[in-house]
Write a protein that binds this DNA or RNA. Structure first.
Length: 486
RNA sequence: GGCGGCGUGGCCGAGUGGUUCAGGCAGGGGCCUGCAAAGCCCCGCACAGCGGUUCGAUUCCGCUCGCCGCCUCCA
């Protein structure tokens, strides 16, 4: 079954036919590195990280490019506020972005490109646009003439008249059409600047993505992603620039946009100030919980963030980590490792007890990444696997074989979704030995029916965040969040 | 004003023209347990409202109401 994606340009879900068979070239608009990112931003990056993982799982070769916007009015503003040079701001927040992404288990793009490393390319592109009559200079600024590009508005589905009707700001002086946008901005005193045929200045925001995406992926690359608030004007402008310069389209084959995160019926945004930082979330929950929250619903719809939603996700995720701890306890040395499986569409159908789940998993995700369905598959798998735990812990037999197979499938599917359990269970060696020793003492007490003492040990360990579960073959424990930690 | 999206059981959140069913969280009952915990089993006659198409609509069409996004920097 082929993979289908919802293409914003067509406004429908269509079979993903790539420029080169078996290869996917994707570009996602990255952060403007002028402050800390919030979970609304993170949702987008978590999603494209997952999409890339899924493509790889399905046997595609993926080239994933992401930009960092490191020249921008807000960066200049921020540098003024912090009293440091602009590049100090951008290096600080680039690093912060990477740290936050790592905390969420988001892998870096294959190619990360910075606007400031590509100014010459942009100047060349702008020059080309001026030459072709798509752009014009005005007092040191260069603007793109939207009237010169017939298809302007095709992505966002609006006409020039529509857009004029909703004008809310005074047209900037020097523009021929109010919606013409800046390709090059002349520098004021003290601002970062680069030389150009129109004098010292800096590139406008939109041009970097057109130039860098086509530089690394070529015209007509497969997927361009970003959040839905970039549809207009940013992506519309990217199309205009790239296709005007190339003299032909398409710039991009498929446009994918992630829905925005809402805060109490209003979108979360830096300019509104109603943000929840990734940093604050990962201080309170494992990164996997945020990943679960972001990925459990469709990427296209709005997602509301409120107090409590992460608690729900934490409970749901806990079901998985609890299962895995139980499997590890029951299987001991037979515990499977995470398989590095790929499941190309043309491969043999998956076999074994977990095969049915693998099939359901790919079936649902092939349909525009229906992750909710994929989560349901994993939950169903966990339920069936849990039924085998009790039998498996008694020793070899049917239940044990099934549990091994189901656990392996579980690790396969959850790793495609970007969850890592191996590291998350961690406690250091000494802690583990101390806990084991305390449990030995407790077992002795239990054997002597000294339940008050046994329960005392359990209660104390619980208060440290160590949860104890007794099983017919001895207690198992795992580290969690201490109750009422905050 | 223009363009677009959404409204599913206490909450989150998929999906479909027709009595097998999403899934999770929360809640109730049971099994297991020394007690727990975890797990397993069972339990909710949900699809904003009003019309229409149809043998049959939560699913298609229209209207109404409500919510949200974009049109300005924004993931």
């Amino acid at each position: 079954m082929p993979i289908k994606v919802h293409d914003q340009m067509l406004r429908s879900t269509v079979v993903l036919e790539t420029r080169d068979p078996g290869r996917i070239a994707m570009y996602v608009c990255g952060p403007t590195v002028y402050n800390l990112i919030h979970i609304g931003n993170a949702r987008t990056f978590l999603w494209f990280d997952f999409i890339r993982r899924y493509f790889l799982y399905r046997g595609w070769q993926v080239t994933y490019v992401m930009n960092y916007t490191d020249v921008d009015d807000r960066i200049i503003e921020r540098a003024g506020v912090e009293g440091v040079p602009a590049d100090a701001v951008t290096s600080k927040y680039s690093k912060a972005f990477e740290d936050d992404m790592a905390a969420l288990g988001v892998n870096p793009a294959d190619i990360i490109c910075r606007a400031t490393d590509h100014v010459e390319d942009m100047v060349e592109a702008i020059d080309g646009l001026v030459e072709r009559g798509s752009a014009y200079e005005s007092d040191g600024d260069v603007f793109f003439s939207i009237e010169s590009f017939d298809a302007y508005g095709k992505l966002s589905g609006r006409t020039l008249e529509d857009m004029r009707a909703g004008e809310r700001i005074e047209p900037q002086a020097g523009k021929r059409h109010p919606l013409d946008f800046a390709l090059w901005k002349s520098a004021k005193e003290g601002e970062p600047s680069w030389p150009s045929p129109w004098g010292p200045g800096r590139p406008g925001w939109h041009i970097e993505c057109s130039v860098m995406s086509t530089k690394y992926l070529g015209m007509g690359f497969d997927i361009h992603g970003g959040a839905s608030d970039l549809t207009f004007p940013h992506h519309e402008n990217e199309i205009a620039q790239a296709e005007a310069l190339a003299g032909a389209g398409p710039f991009v084959r498929f446009w994918m946009h992630a829905g925005l995160v809402q805060m109490e019926s209003q979108k979360m945004s830096k300019s509104l100030g109603n943000v929840v930082l990734v940093r604050d979330v990962v201080a309170r929950y494992p990164g996997e919980v945020a990943r679960y929250w972001a990925l459990a619903g469709s990427y296209r719809t709005q997602l509301t963030f409120s107090d409590g939603v992460l608690d729900d996700s934490a409970q749901a995720y806990d079901r998985w980590s609890t299962f895995l701890a139980a499997a590890r306890h029951a299987l001991g040395g037979d515990m499977p490792a995470t398989p590095a499986a790929t499941r190309p569409a043309d491969a043999e159908p998956p076999e074994g007890p977990g095969g049915e789940y693998v099939q359901r998993f790919t079936d649902t995700l092939d349909d525009d990444f229906n992750s909710s369905g994929a989560f349901a598959v994993v939950h169903d798998l966990v339920r069936e696997a849990n039924r085998c735990v009790e039998g498996a812990q008694r020793g070899p037999g049917e239940d044990r074989n099934l549990l091994i197979a189901f656990t392996e499938t579980f690790l396969e599917l959850t790793s495609v979704m970007g969850f890592r359990f191996d590291a998350a269970t961690g406690s250091d060696e000494l802690t583990a030995r101390l806990i084991d020793y305390l449990l030995e003492l407790r077992e002795g007490a239990r054997r002597n029916k000294e339940f008050a003492a046994a329960d005392g040990i359990r209660d104390r360990l619980e208060s440290f965040g160590v949860s104890i579960e007794d099983t017919p073959v001895g207690p198992r424990w795992r580290l969690g969040t201490p109750p009422a930690a905050a």
